[in-house]
Simulated assay, not measured.
Amino acid sequence: MGWLEVVGWTGSVLVVVSLMQARVLRFRVMNLAGAAIATVYNAVIEVWPFAAMNGAIAVIDVYWLVRLLRERHDDRAYGVVEVARDDAYLAHVLAVHADDIAQFRGTPTGAPAPGDAGAAFLVVRGDETVGVVLVSDEGGGVGRVDLDWVTPRFRDFTPGEFVYRRSGVFAAHGLRRLVTSPVRADREYLERVGFRQAAGGWEREVEPAAA
């Protein structure tokens, strides 16, 4: 097998593997790489219909990558909806994704019991629920983040940060400080949303609600 064939097979493999990716960003990057390689390969061997097709796919991938990366930290792309801790839809989301949540956190997390003190937030993109943040009220103005989870498709975008950016929702519950367990914690993500490492875990001050 010559080097040109190796290049062609590499492009094909990348395109196929990209279709197996659950994460939107990872899919687009791998699909772009495969399509770009396939475009070059087909152009070299002068199979112009396939070169044109893969070139078009590469252009489409570039468009979506630019759009996705632009929306990554755009407040207009995501929304935060507060629901009751015993909300039926929240319980449904947690039940459907129980296995992924357990793998993501390292421990299983079920729906909060009715009457639990604290707050629950759904992170949405349009009409799609892409994340859940659960915070328990420990008293004295301290809230513990029990769950900060994102669906696999959007895990590269960390949409949960939009909950923390809207610090007024925590202040409205009388919280002045948020803490979270270091178990399976993502240091880069926690720092991005304002947490700092402290004795026994991570914590973040809650800014007062705007007047």
Score class of each variant (00 low, 15 high):
3 W>N: 12
5 E>I: 13
9 W>D: 13
10 T>K: 02
10 T>E: 10
14 L>F: 11
15 V>D: 06
15 V>G: 09
18 S>N: 11
18 S>H: 06
21 Q>F: 10
21 Q>E: 13
28 R>V: 06
32 L>I: 07
33 A>R: 04
34 G>F: 00
34 G>L: 04
35 A>D: 09
35 A>I: 03
35 A>G: 12
36 A>F: 10
40 V>W: 06
42 N>Q: 11
42 N>G: 07
47 V>L: 13
52 A>W: 13
52 A>R: 12
57 I>Q: 10
57 I>D: 09
60 I>R: 09
61 D>P: 06
63 Y>V: 14
68 L>D: 13
69 L>E: 11
71 E>S: 13
74 D>T: 03
75 D>M: 14
76 R>C: 11
84 A>Y: 03
86 D>H: 05
90 L>V: 02
90 L>H: 00
91 A>F: 07
95 A>E: 15
96 V>Y: 11
96 V>T: 13
99 D>K: 11
100 D>N: 09
105 R>E: 15
105 R>W: 10
107 T>E: 15
112 P>L: 02
117 A>M: 09
127 D>C: 01
130 V>S: 05
132 V>G: 00
134 L>H: 02
134 L>V: 03
135 V>M: 06
136 S>Q: 14
137 D>Y: 02
143 G>R: 00
144 R>I: 08
145 V>K: 03
146 D>Q: 14
148 D>W: 01
150 V>G: 01
151 T>N: 00
151 T>I: 14
152 P>L: 04
152 P>D: 01
159 P>T: 09
159 P>M: 04
172 A>Q: 13
172 A>T: 12
174 G>H: 02
177 R>E: 12
177 R>S: 05
177 R>L: 09
178 L>S: 03
179 V>H: 01
185 A>L: 07
188 E>Q: 15
189 Y>A: 11
189 Y>D: 03
191 E>P: 06
192 R>T: 10
193 V>Q: 05
196 R>M: 07
202 W>M: 04
202 W>S: 00
205 E>L: 12
205 E>R: 12
208 P>V: 03
210 A>Q: 14
